[in-house]
Structure formats: structure tokens, C-alpha cells
Design a protein around this nucleic acid. Structure first.
Lengths: 227, 227
DNA sequence: ACTTGTTTGTAACATTTGATACAAATCTAC
DNA sequence: GTAGATTTGTATCAAATGTTACAAACAAGT
């Protein structure tokens, strides 16, 4: 049986009352499966034709790299869904292997039945559309960020974004180490570039506080890759 | 008035007959707007709360870089939709400016009305879900590709992907120039790396034909960034 | 076969970034 | 305040890539 009071906390069913969710589930076909610890739930390459929602326990997603070795991607726990990115679209195979970290209960909704659900309830439809759209927007942003070639450009982009229109001084929340990882560069390289920009009069750094001195030239740094 | 026989060629209405589409449109509210050549259709930063579909003519999307200069992103022509990526999700503002290349007719469907449409017709729902999912999958793939640091890794990844399980020899469709652009590197750098891999016995290059000689070592190249 | 334009291979040098190491500054717990 | 841990600033050297330039190979039309 499904436990509606748990599932309604899932991003996809957010805002639905548990009684209403039960009613909705009574109108569709779905399966309920239990997996023992360490059991395989999804094999990499398997076709994704149903939505899986973890009702209890947590699972790990691993990816096979080219040499066959597996790398852990992430842990996913109840009540999160499993297949949102591959249920629709051209790529319908799981790129990852999913297995149970603990004893796990999973609710499995065939694609066609899930579509019914989307049509029956506009809140679920909105939730689902928001989920995958937000993901696409995140990826797009990340891609744009990576499109800046030099560290200087990445810093400029980051600072200008953080500062917005009015602020002059930005306080970095993370450590330089974390910032460097987000930028995909090494920590000393980031520090060196910050120091250079400081000497060039673009910014003034003081530990975690960075003041944007010459906004115009910062902008031009980003402009220069249009050539 | 909408011209159903044109709109049903749009990715979102694919597979719907024009008579059925007319019937569906008769059940929702929408607007029909005409823009003269060079007129502004969407200002960057504007909130996206409706789906726009070009019924006639074509438009250009431009992005303001930080220094205020505009860069042309793409041309979009009838009968393609305009706002699929920003209608849902957290980021509901257009990052681009859209203006008319020719005289343009646009059908504008408020978000809430479009949701009705999705609920009334499962084909449209599937089309739309496929559109945004495919986009997310494309972005994800691109991001993975860019996550490979060295040119050698990018080449290895590309070749192994192209070759699949059986092929040994890959024929490059694009020119080296285009390939380099896709990789985000310069053409001479790409050529140099190909040449290096040739000398190392990983591949054998012959103009546009590349033979994978040592698949194992190619795989290990990709594995090495897990450290 | 010849000319012309395009694509590819290669070289020399400059620039950027990574790797490593270490000192200085800051923070934290006691 | 002090000791120890963490974070930040900086230097040196190596590796990867960009830049520029040019020659060789190829493609297409005449």
C-alpha cells in the first residue's frame, strides 16, 4: 500500500493533501515493491518507462565509467522520485545504476498512468513541469558559467551576479576552497587571480569581502569573448 | 484567428489534426498579435507567463552581455514556440530580447490556459514534456562533455561515444575547425592532440577517418579524473 | 593538368593554469 | 591569551593550451 502522508511530501506531490492523494492513486494502476539492502533496483541502460518514488529508506545512484569501474553519484532518500529526468524526452535509458542502501519501499507508476495523474490534477502537473524546468534552467546556468574561459572572467561574472545592480561589496559565503571547486579550478589559482585583479585595480579584496572598484572594466572582461 | 494547419506543425502540437486543434483552441482563451518588422516582441527581463507560438514570419533572439552590447543568439521561425524553457520552473524571466525579423504573427497563450490544454489532450502533454526533457538531457550531456578537462579526454570521450560497442573506425562528419569549436578549444590544439594520440599508439588518424587502436587505454584516460 | 580556395599538419613561442610547498593570517576551543 | 587547526596569500616550476604562422594535402572547377 502507498503511504499518502509520506508521498505528499515528495516534490511532485507537494501541496496535495494525503486524503486527496489516496483518492488519486485509487484511480490509477501502480505497483509497490520492496527491496532488501544492497539489492539492485535499476540497472544502468535499463529503459525508463515508469516513475519511481522512494516511500521508505534510501538508495544510492552509481555510474559506470568507461573502464567499468563504478563511481557513486548521489544518495537519494524518501520521499524523493527517481526517474524524473529520463521518463520523457529522447533519452529513455538510465545512465546510472541504483541500489538499495537500506531496506527500501518503492512506488512504481507506469508512464501512461503517471500521465493520467498529470491530467487529473493540475497541481501535480505544475509540480512536475516545475521540477524538470528548474533542472533545465540550472543546467543552462551552469553551462553558461563554464563557457567563460579564464578564471578572471569567471570571477567577474560571479561577482557581478552577486552584486546585482546596487551593491558594491560582496561577501563570499563559502571558503575560497569551495569557491574554487565551483569554478572548476584549483584554490591557489583562484587566489592568484584574485590578487592579480586586486593589483590591476579591478577589485579590492579583504579576506571574504570583495569590493568591485571598476565595474566597467569588469564588464569588458566578459564582453571580450565575443570576438 | 489561429491557423490550425500551421500550428499543428509546431513541435508542441505535432500529431494533432488541424480540426482537432481548432476545437481545442475554441475551449481556451488566447490572444493573437501582429508585430511589424523590427518591432520588439519580448524585452529581456520580462516575466514569462504565457506561451508564445510564431504563426507566421520569423524572429531573432538577442542577449545583452554585461556591457550592454547585444549578441544575436538565434533565429526562430514559424511554427516554433518561444518560451518553452521559462514558462515553468524558478526562473521566469526571459534572458533574451526577441524582435521581429519580418512581419510576425504570434499566438499568445496564458500559462493557466496552456495548462488546461495540457490536461485536455495527452498528446500535447507528451509533446511538451518531451520537448523540455530532451532539452534538459541535451544540456546534461553537454555539461558532462565539458567536465572532461584535457583535450585528450574530450577526444577519447567523443570517439568512444561515436564508435559505440562495435565500430573501430570513426568518420568525422564535421571539419576539424567545427569539431574544435564544439570542444571549446582552438583548431591547432585539437590537431596537435590528435597527432600526439597517434604517436602514442592510441589511435590512427587519416584525415577524417580515425581508427581506435587501443580502446583500453582510451578508457583509462577518462577514468583518471576520478582521483 | 592547373589554379584557387579550403582543410589539415606542424612548429615556435606566449599565456594560463595546475601542482606543490610554505608562510602569514585568522579562527576556535580551552 | 595560547595552541592547534583552518583559511588565505604567495612563490616556483611544470604542464596544457592558445596564438600565430606557414607549408602540405586535398577538393573543385575550368
Amino acid at each position: 500500500m502507498i503511504e499518502a502522508d509520506i508521498l505528499c511530501l515528495s516534490p511532485i506531490f507537494r501541496g496535495i493533501s494525503s486524503t486527496e492523494l489516496e483518492k488519486l492513486f485509487s484511480q490509477i494502476h501502480y505497483q509497490h515493491r520492496t527491496y532488501q539492502k544492497n539489492n539492485l533496483i535499476i540497472a544502468s541502460g535499463e529503459i525508463c518507462d515508469r516513475l519511481l518514488i522512494i516511500q521508505r529508506g534510501n538508495v544510492k545512484a552509481e555510474m559506470n565509467d568507461y573502464s567499468g569501474k563504478t563511481i557513486k553519484i548521489e544518495d537519494i532518500e524518501a520521499p524523493r522520485p527517481l526517474a524524473t529526468a529520463f521518463l520523457f524526452g529522447k533519452e529513455n535509458r538510465f545512465p546510472v545504476t541504483v541500489s538499495a542502501n537500506t531496506e527500501v519501499e518503492i512506488v512504481s507508476i507506469p508512464k501512461a498512468e503517471f500521465v493520467k495523474l498529470l491530467q487529473m490534477n493540475s497541481l501535480i502537473l505544475n509540480n512536475y513541469l516545475n521540477t524538470i524546468s528548474t533542472r533545465a534552467q540550472f543546467l543552462s546556468k551552469r553551462l553558461k558559467f563554464l563557457s567563460f574561459k579564464t578564471i578572471k572572467q569567471k570571477i567577474a561574472h560571479y561577482l557581478l551576479e552577486m552584486a546585482g545592480d546596487r551593491l558594491q561589496t560582496v561577501e563570499i559565503q563559502q571558503s575560497q576552497e569551495q569557491l574554487a571547486e565551483m569554478f572548476g579550478v584549483t584554490r591557489p589559482s583562484l587566489a592568484r587571480t584574485l590578487s592579480e585583479m586586486n593589483h590591476e585595480g579591478l577589485i579590492e579584496t579583504q579576506r571574504r569581502f570583495i569590493k568591485i572598484v571598476d565595474k566597467n572594466r569588469m564588464n569588458q572582461l566578459l564582453k571580450s569573448d565575443e570576438k
